[in-house]
């Protein structure tokens, strides 16, 4: 009898909120409903969790993402309240019209890695705040006249700025780079790439001031978005070769002083690459990625051939 009442409550709840659920999400919702029903949670927890799930889907969060959070949370034996808390943060972010993907990704990642629930809650709650600050920074920049591009470009920029803030890059350094972007009449995507490069360099041990100086200088020198990406790669490949971050940064600066970093690629192009790699059969893999990938590029990680 109890089960029947529970079942009916759940069904009626689903029916009330069901109108908003897209057909594609139906299967996912059904999956969540079944797993929640099968769980060891109390009746009350089951109902309130299911309500939270419906809130999330109604707010426009992909049901597939919600399923992952609920299922992984249950597999980690988390409290129903903790899972509700995660979904609550995501719903809040979504309702503020902020990009929700980074928050969902961080939750899914934390749950998969077995991070304790309160830590995930703390980190994602903080991320939500950073997204809100990032949103203001990006909107101000667009209002000041920087071309916004597509909605996707804006969303990506907000995410990148939020990550930069999360890595403790000060807000004023970020807005300074924003002003540089505006000064050189670049679109918002240039801002995104500059901040991303800065974050990656800082994350690998470069001082914030040095990273921002490098990126700003690159813009002053008329570097394109791709040039900045190449600059970042170049620095990382030097680090891999054993250079210290400090030295790699200084070298990059002096290369820029001389007017570009094309020359630094010399001797590493075409011939030598094929030369070294063909002896170890890697030439084929490069050719493979070349033909397979077409416009993009195929790379890989780790050792390619043995």
């Amino acid at each position: 009898m109890k089960r029947l009442i529970l079942f009916l409550t759940i069904i009626s709840l689903l029916m009330v909120c069901g109108t908003a659920i897209a057909e594609t999400g139906q299967k996912a919702i059904e999956e969540i409903r079944l797993s929640i029903e099968k769980s060891a949670f109390s009746k009350e927890t089951k109902i309130s969790l299911l309500k939270k799930v419906n809130d999330a889907v109604n707010a426009g969060i992909q049901p597939g993402d919600v399923v992952i959070i609920v299922n992984r949370g249950m597999r980690q034996n988390l409290d129903g309240k903790a899972i509700e808390g995660f979904i609550g943060i995501a719903v809040k972010v979504k309702n503020q019209n902020l990009p929700v993907r980074p928050v969902l990704d961080r939750m899914q990642q934390g749950l998969s890695k077995g991070v304790p629930a309160d830590r995930i809650m703390g980190v994602t709650g903080m991320l939500a705040e950073k997204l809100s600050v990032a949103n203001t920074i990006v909107n101000d920049l667009i209002k000041s006249g920087v071309k916004a591009g597509s909605g996707k470009a804006k969303e990506e920029t907000i995410q990148t700025v939020a990550l930069a803030l999360e890595r403790s890059i000060p807000e004023n350094i970020i807005t300074q780079t924003g002003m540089r972007v505006k000064k050189h009449n670049h679109p918002i995507s240039m801002f995104e790439i500059s901040i991303d490069t800065m974050t990656n360099l800082v994350g690998s041990g470069m001082r914030v001031e040095q990273a921002s100086k490098l990126v700003n200088k690159a813009m002053d020198r008329g570097y394109s978005e791709k040039d900045i990406l190449r600059m970042e790669r170049e620095i990382f490949s030097e680090i891999k070769e054993g250079k210290r971050m400090e030295d790699a940064a200084r070298r990059m600066e002096s290369v820029m002083e001389r007017g570009g970093f094309e020359r630094s690629h010399r001797g590493m192009e075409g011939g030598q690459m094929r030369g070294t790699s063909s002896g170890m059969e890697s030439g084929s893999s490069m050719g493979g990625s070349d033909s397979k990938s077409g416009p993009g590029w195929g790379g890989g990680s780790g050792m390619q051939r043995r």
Partner: peptide
């Protein structure tokens, strides 16, 4: 070699 590919294919392309 992968890193090389990452750096160079970029240049190459």
């Amino acid at each position: 070699v992968c890193l090389v590919i990452i750096v160079f294919t970029g240049v190459f392309q």
